[in-house]
Design a protein around this nucleic acid. Sequence first.
DNA 1: AGGATACATCGACGCACATCGATGGTTGCG
DNA 2: CGCAACCATCGATGTGCGTCGATGTATCCT
Lengths: 125, 125
Amino acid sequence: MAQVTAHQHTEDDECCPGADCELMSREPAEDLAVVFKALADPTRVRLLHYLAESESGTTCACHLPGALGISQPTLSFHMRKLYDAGLVERDRRGRWVHYTIRPEALERVGSFLALPVRKSRDACC
Amino acid sequence: MAQVTAHQHTEDDECCPGADCELMSREPAEDLAVVFKALADPTRVRLLHYLAESESGTTCACHLPGALGISQPTLSFHMRKLYDAGLVERDRRGRWVHYTIRPEALERVGSFLALPVRKSRDACC
DNA sequence: AGGATACATCGACGCACATCGATGGTTGCG
DNA sequence: CGCAACCATCGATGTGCGTCGATGTATCCT
């Protein structure tokens, strides 16, 4: 287990901006991390970019192994990651599977990246 | 090596939106993935949030192990990830190290997440 | 029914990650 | 100088990821 006891500084120690700030709780942090994990691979970044450039954000999976230079099982592995993270929709059409980007999922994590940095004493602590 | 040969469809096959789209090249995809990897951990998400909530986006590292319930080496490991990804600045002040969030780095990846989905025939293919 | 095509899953392999205790390097103080 | 505090790195360990070939599943065509 981790050491949770506070450090020994006095209250007005000169070292320490940022003490006792509010902490994001675990669940939302884990939810965000799941999506960032799905984005944390260059192949998947390229896949999402490819989807976004396709008409209506949709493409047939059959193009993708050849376009990216990866095997078909590898593509399937990556698309499952994107699907599980909610970043793409899956649509079976006959023999083929079409994947469509979900911009609202991107916006959700994008809004986290717009973290407003507190400029002065309206900070939390 | 991967199979790069194209599939066998005829030109007007009904299956296939999204053929022959432009592909993001490797280097920018890898650069983006490096930053997403740095964000792909719930502990680091909470650290960035903590920094953002601190005054001027700066906090002293000494608070963080206790605040997050992690050991000091683990904190150091995570801060190095964030630093290597360019997401935070490091500032040694006497015995202490202050970390400051770099909003411009967040904006850079954030702009990727604003992927505009092509709605119609101005698509690339 | 039988064959062919597209996609998913399985098993295996190598590599990277998250975590911690222990150790090393800097800085400040008495 | 010597000690204490803060932080970084090292070594070890368990876990998860990315990749592929082989195999399974679903669909279409003849």
